[in-house]
């Protein structure tokens, strides 16, 4: 049974004529790692906010169809209830940091769901470990942390609630390269050691492509493509036309394929791209 099921889902924000999303049919299984891509304002954020009930609960607008998360229809349950099953990490590490120390931040959700003190202590240790935040950071205030550290604290504070589903909406877009790498590293760790459904919205696909089970392209309020990565990236020109720029090595290998120099699968990592290019070029040199 899927953990998220959207049936003919549509949403139009109040005061706007355009539907932010329309006719979305989607189901996500437990344990899947799903990447969502697409240009800005295409409906990606609306899609993920519908998955934890922020839409329709926190926004005014018109809804169509339904979203059922862990058996709960989002039209009937408040976000605070859904939040126990679905964690949400936002893109701006600054404005989602709600407290004055790392410890308060991580503990906040756990206090809200009324766990007992020992359980909280144990979960703090566990989640900080997973997010690579040293325990002596507990007393640090937000302004002593880098962007990457803040974002990892945000992830830890969600992990601590042990949700079955974790949604990250462009978690690296505001970070510097070190911060980006740190967060991707945590995602990799989560995939390895924490059996949750992970849903990530990302512009930079090079780091996510090797991790994801499935890519979804959202464009102009519609889900245009929904496929495993290798299949998803197979038609690079289609992606480019729809405002998505795949990793540059993929673009290069796709060009090799167009020239008739290569007919293998599209590479998902730099290493694969190197061997694919070598294969193609060796054919050329031997001619």
């Amino acid at each position: 049974m899927p953990v998220i099921r959207m049936e003919n889902f549509g949403w139009r924000y109040e005061g706007q004529e355009r539907w932010a999303l329309r006719g979305v049919n989607l189901s996500v299984e437990q344990g899947e790692f799903v990447a969502i891509v697409g240009p800005n304002d295409s409906g990606k954020s609306t899609l993920v906010m519908a998955m934890n009930g922020l839409i329709p609960n926190n926004y005014y607008g018109v809804i169509e169809g339904s979203v059922v998360v862990k058996g709960m229809d989002t039209r009937e349950h408040p976000v605070a209830d859904i939040a126990r099953h679905v964690g949400f990490v936002f893109s701006d590490p600054e404005s989602q940091f709600l407290s004055m120390t790392v410890e308060e931040e991580v503990v906040f959700g756990l206090e809200n769901i009324g766990l007992d003190v020992d359980e909280i202590r144990e979960r703090v240790e566990w989640s900080l470990g997973l997010a690579h935040i040293p325990m002596d950071y507990l007393e640090k205030p937000p302004y002593e942390l880098s962007g990457g550290q803040k974002q990892r604290v945000a992830i830890a504070s969600i992990l601590a609630m042990r949700p079955e589903i974790i949604i990250l909406d462009e978690p690296t877009s505001m970070l510097d390269p070190v911060g980006k790498t740190e967060v991707i590293e945590v995602l990799r760790e989560m995939r390895r050691s924490y059996n949750a459904t992970i849903i990530v919205v990302e512009h930079r696909m090079e780091d996510i492509a090797p991790l994801a089970d499935r890519f979804i392209l959202v464009h102009d309020g519609r889900v245009l493509r929904d496929a495993p990565p290798r299949e998803f990236f197979d038609d690079i020109d289609f992606l480019l036309e729809h405002g998505v720029f795949p990793p540059e090595p993929m673009v290069f290998v796709s060009e090799l394929r167009k020239m008739g120099l290569y007919d293998g699968p599209i590479p998902l990592t730099l290493e694969e791209a190197i061997s694919a290019s070598r294969e193609a070029l060796s054919g050329l040199r031997g001619r």
Binding site: P249, L270, A273, I274
Partner: peptide
């Protein structure tokens, strides 16, 4: 950039 790394590898 990854493309520079790819070029280097080739």
């Amino acid at each position: 950039p990854q493309i520079t790394l790819l070029a280097d590898a080739l």
